[in-house]
Design a binder for these strands. Structure first.
Length: 900
DNA sequence: TCAATTTC
DNA sequence: GAAATTGA
């Protein structure tokens, strides 16, 4: 029989410091948990124990503290990142059926000592795993102490039976206690005897066997200061010995057989590992039946594929006057709708598209009940609306294009993923299984559990997975129904009801309409531009190869670094983790002295232009000659929207050559582009939120804000500000908006860090209320755990409690930046909704097409231009009532470049 | 996954 | 500070 014991805190501690920090998408730290479990699995495999237990300390004074106040007094408090992992690993261990043994008033050491003694008495072989050498005193010929050491080459394990210990240390394990009594232990704050260190302690104990024997023989010892100390501090030595002695008789009560090692890979443990996103551990659960779920609502899920049954189902909904229904539509990448699940909380059904139940029929039924007043709740409503639009007739589609998706498809729907995003915008995704777990406290299968390696789109095409698809869809509908109210309650409690109802949901419809419209793009012109770029790129390539003396891949930073800094021996190369940095700002410094650098920088610029824009945009043009980007509403931490496939929010504008790309975006016949962008919206938000009179005054006076800043910061009359001063002031303004660090600012404007700090200090002096405002943002975020915008939108900032200085500094910048960026985002969202809604309300045919953070682009019918201009101006300028005016710059043009 | 580049 | 895309 074999007993394996683990020292919980010690191993968790080793894992925490020995492994890189891991965080799951909810921002929970998991690195130590992962390391601990791996270590545990390794020992279980190696040792093949029949019994297994883990001991943890509890945070309470032990009998040792009662003996000696200062016991462990020098211990630093545990990092918060590690502390939060303690209950989690215990939770997982319990889920695995592993006894987690803790005892108030006793240390894990005593528990381990006692258990090992009992184990030995029962005739078992015992292995104790710990990173702590204190436990070595427990070694006997039956009790082995294993100390894992993480080295670069992997984990090495030192094993000590009593005889190994004696060989290594020259004393017995029991005598090691006496050694410690003499030399003390700084980590536990055991005093020991002054002047006696490791050497003397071992020597004495090896010779006399114990402190008592030493004490009895002091007269024989050579006269020395340490001997006097020893005699003087005999009481301390005795106390130290007591402190250092692990108690083998802790009053542990264990049920018979409770340490028996069973199947660790339980369903419960699997779900926890999944929850903490310990993906590498999941394969270990291979043989666990993880498809079955602890939640049994799935039993009541029903699939219907009989036409009349579906008919009566929808009739019932109408008759019973259901006000709210959770819904989910199943479709793959082909956008073909395979079915829809609906849930009213009591019954949940999956309607399969098949036979007379066509997608067309099903979608129209859904639209019908929604228009009749039933509120539908979806995951990713915007996408659902696209799926539905896809199966509509041409006339219906036209109506959607002209009158908007809200009135034509779902006038009364909500999106639970957007709601969940508002509650915590820092997560990666907002899936039903995640929200179910968080809001309803139930564990439901995720796509991966139901479909295995297949994705939903493949599963939809695989008849054998119909059951799984049914379960999946039903859960989505069921959770949409069940979680929405709870999410909303939390949103209301957090004071974000207004944001959800009056900003995000209307915005969703606005974004849908923008996506439906798309923007016309000249594919031919792009192809020509690409050709033009190719010619110049080839020239540059040749030039670079000639200067380098060989051909290589210029796009590979690794190869480029080697060529520049090794082969060509260019001085001043900076290192990154993986090699030399070849970033533009690094190379630019080296450009004057090295002609090849100029060519490389130009090559880079053109290569980016060609690959991302000239070539990258071409396949995005649809059959209608327009590009339909997707605006993501649940991605950014601050509340901004983002744009993908393609990203139309980073189309070049600064570089002369790059901005030519904007020419290929053009208005349709009879239209011009009206492009309006907020002037300095973030600084205006800052002026308002800080209430700083100087900044507000500068805006009210209509001054060039960077010049005004320069004038204050450099103490120069306004009209004598030099260009350089203005440029520096502009960088400082940017820095403030972005949550300044002297380091970042220094890098930005090419001055020393000290000088940059002076700029910041001057800035804070120039705007007296700014300092208190920014400090207030930091302390408020730290206290509350989140940063908050003017409208109450929240963004968690757990980094503020990090033990790592860099992380904490990052958190501070986030705390300063998020409210500003987020408030600006709120304002333009409000403006978008208002512009969009008013264009429709006033019966104008002109359409909002794009948003680029502080800019709106409207495809404007020429005969509506005047009206549209005033709509844009009014709605954008009045989107928020700040202590400074919101001003916009508006231009018209026959392409995006001209209009900007 | 990382480094680099583009935008606001 | 916030993003998305590309290529290795």
């Amino acid at each position: 029989m074999k007993l394996l014991l683990m020292d919980g805190h010690s191993i968790l501690n080793r894992a925490y410091y020995g492994l890189p920090d891991l965080t799951n998408s909810a921002g929970e730290h998991t690195g130590a948990i992962f390391g601990f479990l791996n270590m545990m699995f390794k020992f279980i495999e190696d040792e093949q124990p029949d019994n297994f237990a883990v001991a943890f300390d509890v945070h309470a004074p032990t009998f040792r503290h009662k003996m000696y106040d200062a016991y462990k007094g020098t211990r630093k408090p545990m990092d918060p990142e590690l502390r939060e992992q303690v209950p989690r690993i215990q939770e997982i261990l319990k889920a695995m059926g592993v006894p987690v043994i803790t005892m108030e008033g006793w240390e894990a050491d005593d528990i381990l000592g006692t258990l090992s003694r009992i184990g030995q008495e029962k005739g078992m072989d015992v292995t104790i795993v710990s990173g702590d050498r204190d436990l070595l005193q427990l070694a006997t010929d039956k009790i082995k102490i294993s100390i894992p050491k993480t080295k670069k080459t992997g984990t090495e394990i030192e094993n000590y039976f009593a005889k190994d210990f004696e060989q290594a240390y020259g004393v017995t394990p029991k005598q090691y206690i006496d050694v410690k009594a003499l030399m003390g232990d700084s980590s536990d704050n055991i005093p020991g005897v002054a002047g006696i260190g490791e050497k003397t302690a071992f020597k004495w104990i090896a010779q006399y066997g114990s402190i008592e024997e030493c004490h009895a023989h002091v007269s024989e010892m050579k006269k020395a200061k340490v001997v006097d100390n020893f005699i003087e501090q005999w009481d301390t030595a005795v106390l130290s010995k007591e402190l250092a002695t692990i108690n083998l008789n802790a009053p542990i009560e264990l049920e018979e057989g409770s340490t028996k090692l069973g199947n660790l890979f339980t369903e419960e443990a699997y779900l926890l590992c999944k929850r903490y996103e310990l993906k590498k551990l999941l394969p270990r659960f291979e043989n666990t039946d993880t498809a079955s779920v602890t939640d049994n609502t799935a039993d009541s899920f029903k699939r219907v594929n009989d036409f009349s049954e579906v008919e009566t189902f929808f009739e019932d909904i109408k008759k019973t006057g259901k006000a709210f229904i959770g819904a989910s539509i199943m479709a793959g990448d082909d956008k073909v709708i395979r079915g829809a699940a609906l849930s009213d909380g009591e019954s949940t059904v999956y309607v399969e598209c098949q036979g007379f139940i066509s997608a067309d029929y099903l979608c129209h039924k859904l639209m019908e009940i929604c228009k009749a007043g039933v509120r539908l709740c979806f995951w990713d409503l915007k996408n659902v609306m696209h799926l539905i639009t896809n199966i509509l007739s041409d006339d219906e589609k036209k109506a959607v294009m002209e009158k908007g998706g809200k009135s034509q498809i779902f006038p009364n729907a909500v999106d639970v993923s957007v709601a969940a995003y508002l509650l915590n915008p820092t997560k990666k995704e907002y899936t039903a299984d995640d929200v179910a777990n968080e809001m309803l406290g139930i564990i439901i299968p995720a796509a991966a559990d139901l479909f295995g390696k297949k994705k939903l789109k493949d599963a939809l095409l695989d008849d054998s997975l119909l059951e799984a698809v049914t379960t999946y869809a039903c859960y989505e509908a069921y959770v949409a129904y069940g979680a929405f109210e709870k999410v909303m309650a939390e949103i209301e409690a957090a004071g974000m009801g207004h944001i959800f109802t009056d900003i995000e949901m209307p915005l969703l419809y606005t974004l849908f309409d923008m996506e439906i419209q798309g923007i016309a793009m000249d594919k031919e012109a792009l192809a020509q531009f690409s050709q033009k770029l190719s010619t110049r790129i080839e020239e540059l390539e040749k030039d670079i190869y000639a200067q380098a003396g060989e051909e290589f891949n210029i796009n590979s930073p690794k190869q480029l670094g080697v060529i520049l800094f090794e082969k060509m021996g260019i001085e001043g190369g900076k290192k990154t983790k993986t090699g030399y940095s070849t970033a533009a700002d690094v190379l630019e410094e080296l450009a004057p002295a090295n002609p090849i650098i100029g060519s490389i920088l130009e090559y880079r610029q053109l290569a980016k232009l060609k690959s991302t824009y000239a070539d990258g945009l071409q396949p995005c043009v649809g059959e209608d000659g327009r590009v339909h980007s997707t605006f993501m509403q649940t991605v950014t931490a601050t509340g901004r929207i983002s744009s993908i496939e393609p990203n139309l929010q980073n189309i070049p504008i600064r570089m002369e050559l790059g901005k030519e790309i904007r020419r290929v975006f053009y208005p349709k016949d009879g239209c011009v582009f009206l492009d309006a962008d907020y002037s300095q919206i973030e600084l205006r938000v800052l002026a308002h939120m800080s209430g700083d009179d100087n900044l507000i005054g500068a805006f009210k006076a209509g001054q060039d804000i960077h010049r005004s800043t320069a004038s204050l910061v450099f103490n120069t009359p306004f009209d004598q500000v030099t260009d350089l001063q203005r440029r520096s002031a502009k960088a400082v303004n940017f820095g403030i908006v972005y949550g300044i660090s002297a380091f970042g600012l220094a890098k930005d404007i090419g001055v020393g860090r000290k000088e940059a700090q002076e700029y910041i200090d001057n800035y804070l002096k120039a705007y007296p209320k700014m300092h208190t405002f920014l400090e207030g943002l930091k302390s408020s975020a730290k206290e509350k755990g989140y940063a908050v915008t003017l409208y109450g939108r929240r963004r968690p900032v757990p980094e503020l409690n990090s033990s790592n200085f860099m992380n904490r500094q990052f958190g501070e910048r986030v705390a300063m930046n998020s409210p500003i960026q987020g408030t600006a985002a709120d304002i333009i969202k409000i403006a978008m909704v208002k512009v969009h809604d008013r264009l429709l309300a006033e019966g104008l045919k002109s359409k909002l097409l794009l948003q680029v953070h502080d800019e709106l682009l409207v495809e404007t019918y020429i005969d509506e231009q005047e009206k549209v201009e005033s709509v844009i101006r009014e709605e954008m300028e009045n989107a928020a009532e700040l202590s400074v005016k919101l001003e916009i710059d508006m231009n018209e043009g026959s392409n995006w470049l001209e209009a900007h």
